[in-house]
Design a protein around this nucleic acid. Structure first.
Lengths: 344, 344
DNA sequence: TTGAAAGCGCTAACAT
DNA sequence: ATGTTAGCGCTTTCAA
């Protein structure tokens, strides 16, 4: 008997009708203050809780936002979800969370589940394994408001919130140059994800802007993991002329690279400078502390949710063209990228 | 027009009735395979998605689990949520996430919101600021299935999943002793939270079991933060006879202590041994790597969800007495607690 | 300012 | 094995 009380009960109690009670509870204009007051009193006295299933069914609004992230275990996404959730509550929305585990099949299941739950809108950060985007096209076609964040794709005409990955990578690379490093290598991530593609381009852009030739052998293609970082170092130090700095496409990759370099007794910084991307929590506390690029996670969550709410609340407008919010990356200089040894 | 298709449409298409379609879609026994097949075909052909609002309203089951965590930004909770969510999906439940931000007011709002959404069950890790538990009593009274995880309270008769904090603390303290440390200090957390209370007791228990007197001056009361760790060191090293090891009530506190000790040029390990609690991601990668106690986060999430599902699915049974699942803590020995210097 | 009545889409009891 | 009917609890015309 947890949820027995309905508006009908309140109506009976006050000798009025469900319609009046409903209106009073949602502060409908044409209801006398006296009635409103007595209804609210009776409601809280009877411990009434509006049944959102019934309400949604009738009104067509669920006040539910579906959020798909690759994994709640990854700090970055937890942090973005934190941002999303805090603003969602302010707008009266609840967050339905779904993890894709970087897997396109689960991702699609999440979307199905959201459709079935009739969420008012969807927020997605695309799974690593997703290369075919038809499930998102389907959502788009159905007209369900959807916004990508961080892991996005521009080809489907879906709005998105990202940071400027190109610029972040550009800044990171120039930072290494400014510290006196000359041969800068890059360990990249999956190129079908725009972020990592853009970071690679930003890296190349910075080199070119400084009249340095891009050497393909100094680019190692990893897959966003500690292992990739280690493998990158493996690869680079098998070259006749290894690099003197590494820009890793995200912090875990940088961490792997640092561990491997340390095992090889290569001095960081000095002999080799390292910078990552993401500003994960651990970076500040490892030795050497990791220079990185901050992605403004909380702000990203907030912006994504605000954009989605705009879509939900004034659907017809803004439908002309794809919106894209680009946040500024923040360079965080720490020890791992300190000055290159003057030798050479 | 995103969601126009209903079972009535399918029924019309196939010259049958909504009831048959409904039954066919949920694989009701008494429906011919032929009908089932044609219904399923028509459904997927028309792109039908079951309306869960309607279904829930009628059946009384929402297949929604409400989860309240202090913050998605904290890795530990992200990880538990990961565990919860993965099993929830297997059971056909969706997770509604709410963050309390360690604040009792938000916590209560989350519960209200869950009641209104008619969730089938609730999972909560209690906020740091919560000292009055009446809102949970209210949930209990309403008969809504609820399970605490990690941050729990035993006085309300609510089932819970925790790790054995006492034992974990006991193990951590004995570990330091076994490495040759003699004067072991403890930086604790908020004592109204059972975890931190138990860890303090475990620390004292281990000392007593080894015939070592507990010195109140070697216990510093912190509040689960990097700052607390620093303050603890401040406090201890103002004593005439500082400790030679620190057991911190969680990893961030340990991290603060280590940073402060490093700044004071005190050697870890050797001069001072340090161990934390939680097995946060960064511990493996800081220098020295942090010894700690693993809390089996994923398992905790899974167990909590399984326990909740049990409550939901066979309510009357098990209602006699409070259930409590206690997971085993896992000691993780790393560098920060290596052997004490033999000097002295 | 309020009431009466219909219906959102689905499921389940009761037929047949 | 399938159809008929009622109704979950709410919101929303339309009418008074």
């Amino acid at each position: 008997m947890p949820y027995k009380i309905t508006i009908a009960d309140i109506a009976r109690e006050l000798n009025t009708t469900p319609a009046t009670v409903s209106r009073a509870l949602s502060n409908h204009p044409g209801i006398s203050d006296k009635t409103k007051k007595s209804v609210h009193e009776a409601a809280s006295q009877l411990n009434y809780k509006r049944n959102r299933m019934a309400s949604s069914l009738r009104s067509g609004k669920t006040h539910l936002i579906g959020v798909i992230i690759p994994s709640a275990e990854i700090n970055f996404f937890g942090s973005v979800v934190h941002g999303i959730e805090s603003v969602a509550n302010l707008h009266g929305y609840n967050v339905l969370l779904y993890q894709s585990n970087e897997n396109r099949e689960y991702e699609e299941k999440g979307l199905e589940s959201f459709l079935s739950a009739r969420v008012d809108g969807i927020l997605v950060s695309i799974a690593k394994d997703t290369i075919d985007y038809s499930h998102f096209r389907e959502i788009k076609k159905r007209g369900v408001p959807i916004v990508f964040f961080d892991r996005t794709n521009d080809d489907i005409g879906i709005d998105s919130v990202v940071i400027d990955d190109y610029k972040g990578a550009f800044l990171a690379t120039e930072h290494l140059l400014s510290k006196g490093y000359k041969r800068i290598a890059h360990i990249s991530g999956p190129q079908h994800l725009k972020n990592f593609y853009d970071r690679l381009r930003g890296y190349m852009g910075a080199l070119q802007a400084n009249k340095i030739k891009v050497e393909p052998s100094l680019i190692y293609h990893g897959n966003i993991s500690i292992e990739s970082g280690r493998e990158g170092v493996h690869h680079f130090w098998a070259l006749p002329d290894p690099p003197d700095a590494i820009f890793a496409t995200e912090d875990f990759t940088a961490l792997g690279a640092i561990s491997e370099l340390k095992e090889r007794k290569i001095k960081i910084p000095g002999e080799v400078g390292v910078i990552g991307f993401a500003n994960e929590l651990f970076g500040k506390h490892i030795t050497p502390s990791l220079s990185t690029v901050d992605q403004q996670t909380i702000q990203m969550g907030k912006s994504a949710l605000n954009l989605l709410v705009d879509l939900i609340e004034k659907k017809e407008i803004n439908r002309q063209r794809q919106q894209k919010i680009v946040l500024e990356p923040l360079l965080i200089g720490r020890d791992s990228s300190e000055k290159a040894a003057k030798i050479k």
